[in-house]
C-alpha cells in the first residue's frame, strides 16, 4: 500500500516576460489501487503538473511538496524519483537517436530493479510487452522513438509502463492523437497495470473519450493551475455535456 501526496504545489517557469506561475497550489492524494483522472482545458497547467512531479529541469517548484510514502521526492533527482517508483508516460515521448529500444529498456530495468534482468526471460518479456501493445518485436532494434508514428510512441510508453511496473504512473495526455484502435490498445495496457490492485494512476486528459475504456475512481477538474472540483465518474459525464466553461469563468473572476 503506497501513497502519493501532492501538497500545496506551486510551480513556475521562466518565460521571456519573466517568471510565470503555472501551478497555484495543487493538493491531491493518490493511493495505490486508485485511478484519478485530471481533466482540464488547454493551458490549465495539467502537463506542468506531470512534468513537475517527474522533475523536468524547466520547471521550478516555488512552494509545496510531493510525498511518496512520506518522502519528499522533490528533493530527488529525476532518475531517483523513477527508482522510487514513479513513472511518467509523456505526451511527446523523446526521440533518442542511435540508442536501441532493447538497450534502453534493459538499462532502465536494470536501474529500476538494482540488478540486471535475467537474460533468459528478459527478451521474451520485452517481446511480449511489445506485442501486447501491438508493436512488432522488431521495434526492439530501432532507435528509441525515432521515426515512430505518434501512436507507436504512445504504445511504446505503455510497453515501458508494463515492463518497469512502477508504484505510480502519471499518464500525460496519453490519449491525444490516437485513433480508436490505438486508444483501445493503450487503455487495455493501463487496465492490465491497474488490475494488479496495488498501483496508482494519475490520468491527465483533455477529453472524456479515454474514460470509456479506463474507469477512474475519481475525477478532478483542473483549471488555472489548481483543482477546481473533485468528484466521481459522474463529473466526467457532466464535463462531457457542459464543457469547462463554467470553471474557466469562475477561475477568471
Amino acid at each position: 500500500m503506497s501513497k502519493l501526496e501532492i501538497k500545496n504545489l506551486h510551480v513556475s517557469v521562466n518565460t521571456e516576460d519573466g517568471e510565470k506561475e503555472i501551478l497555484r497550489g495543487v493538493d491531491l492524494t493518490v493511493n495505490s489501487g486508485e485511478v484519478h483522472a485530471i481533466m482540464g482545458p488547454n493551458g490549465s497547467g495539467k502537463s506542468t503538473l506531470a512534468y513537475s512531479i517527474a522533475g523536468h529541469p524547466k520547471y521550478t517548484v516555488t512552494d509545496g511538496e510531493v510525498l511518496l510514502d512520506g518522502e519528499n521526492i522533490l528533493e530527488l533527482s529525476v532518475d531517483e524519483r523513477a527508482r522510487a517508483g514513479l513513472f511518467l508516460a509523456m505526451q511527446y515521448p523523446v526521440e533518442v537517436p542511435g540508442v536501441s529500444v532493447a538497450n534502453f529498456l534493459r538499462t532502465a530495468k536494470t536501474a529500476i530493479d538494482g540488478e540486471a534482468p535475467k537474460l533468459r526471460t528478459w527478451v521474451k518479456d520485452v517481446n511480449a510487452a511489445l506485442e501486447r501493445v501491438t508493436l512488432d518485436p522488431s521495434f526492439a532494434q530501432r532507435s528509441v522513438n525515432e521515426g515512430f508514428s505518434g501512436g507507436e510512441k504512445k504504445r511504446h510508453e505503455i510497453a515501458q509502463l508494463e515492463l518497469l511496473n512502477p508504484k505510480f504512473a502519471v499518464l500525460d495526455e496519453t490519449d491525444s492523437g490516437l485513433d480508436i484502435d490505438a486508444l483501445r490498445v493503450v487503455s487495455e495496457g493501463v487496465n492490465r497495470y491497474t488490475e494488479q490492485r496495488d498501483r496508482g494512476v494519475l490520468l491527465i486528459t483533455h477529453y472524456t473519450r479515454i474514460l470509456q475504456y479506463i474507469k477512474p475512481d475519481f475525477v478532478h477538474v483542473f483549471v488555472a493551475g489548481r483543482l477546481a472540483e473533485s468528484g466521481g465518474r459522474e463529473l466526467a459525464d457532466q464535463l462531457e455535456a457542459q464543457g469547462y466553461d463554467k470553471y474557466v469563468k469562475a477561475a477568471a473572476v
Binding site: V78, A82, A108, Q160
Partner: peptide, 27 residues
Amino acid sequence: NHLFYLQSRGIEEGEARRLVVHGFFND
C-alpha cells in the same frame, strides 16, 4: 530532453549521458 527522458526511466545521469553519446555516434 534526451537526458530527461532517459532519467525519467530510472537511468542515472552519467549513464544517460553515456547512452546519448553512444547513440550519437552509433548512428
